[in-house]
Simulated scan of single mutants.
Amino acid sequence: MFTCWVLAGALGAVLFLYSLIDVHYFLRMFFTVIFAKFCKKPAHILDETTIYGLCTLNDIDTLLYHMNNARYLRELDFARADFYERTSLYREICSQGNGVVQGAATIRYRRFLKPFTMYKVTSKIICWDSESIFMEHKLITPYDNFVRAIAICRQRVLNCNAEAVMAALLERGVKQNGTVDGITQVTHVRPQMTEEVAKWLESNDISSANLRGPQNVQVITTN
């Protein structure tokens, strides 16, 4: 009888948790970070990292034949967590400031993912300024190497300078690579902002101006 009550209590606790929070999300995030920290090699801040996923029945939309559009953006959270951990980006930001938030994101869907299709998400930094770090993510199916979706995300750093954060990580990468037994150290060139990103930022600025509304509007009256 006692065992039945224990099992019923455990089941009730699980149901209660699932009713309050997205348990799968937090569990997967936890294991993503642990796996990146202990099972994967560290990556240079300008390297491209990769995680893998599978489109399950939890991911499909109401039409029941492809991944829900929102799930693509959700997958980017796990890809960024893997990237942050392997490159020490998040630790460096926190050592200089108070963290990082997603400032903006745009995604282009090119071809849908069917249920039970395996995919990979690649992540890399494409440029940065004093306030933000810009990342590009690609969701690719390995069997045909087709880019199913591509996203650009703006990571705003809080109470620190993104230039200083990147400079510290780039310097650390040079020291770690170094020159050993006559082998020339690996160098990474800072990427320039592409026209695509520049135009995207311009559209964001236009959107911000529209949301703020007209300023200093002069009203002209006639007699």
Rank of each mutant, 00 (worst) to 15 (best):
A151R: 00
E196K: 07
K41F: 05
T50R: 07
T62A: 14
V23W: 07
A79M: 10
K114D: 03
C55Y: 03
T32W: 00
F112K: 10
G97E: 08
T184M: 12
D144I: 02
G12V: 10
L63E: 06
H44G: 14
T194L: 08
V33I: 15
A209I: 08
S123E: 04
K138L: 03
F112C: 10
V189E: 15
E85V: 14
C39E: 06
R148I: 01
S203K: 13
R86H: 11
R74P: 01
I60L: 08
G103N: 05
R86D: 05
V101G: 10
T221A: 08
L27P: 01
H44I: 00
G178K: 11
D82F: 00
A10Q: 02
P191G: 05
Y119K: 00
K37Y: 13
E48H: 09
G182Q: 07
E131K: 15
I140Q: 02
N161K: 00
G213L: 10
M193C: 15
I126N: 08
Y109D: 02
T122V: 01
S123G: 06
S19M: 03
R86P: 05
F78D: 01
K37P: 08
T179L: 04
N98C: 08
A13C: 13
M193L: 11
H24Q: 09
Q96I: 07
W128T: 04
G178Q: 11
A164Q: 13
H188N: 09
R71K: 13
A105D: 01
S203D: 11
V180Q: 06
N145F: 03
V157R: 05
D82N: 15
V217R: 09
A151N: 06
Q176H: 02
A151T: 04
L89K: 00
G178D: 12
C127L: 07
V147C: 15
Q176C: 01
N210H: 13
P214F: 13
G103E: 04
T117S: 14
L17N: 02
I220V: 11
H188Y: 15
E48T: 15
R74V: 09
E171D: 14
Q96N: 11
I51Q: 00
V147N: 12
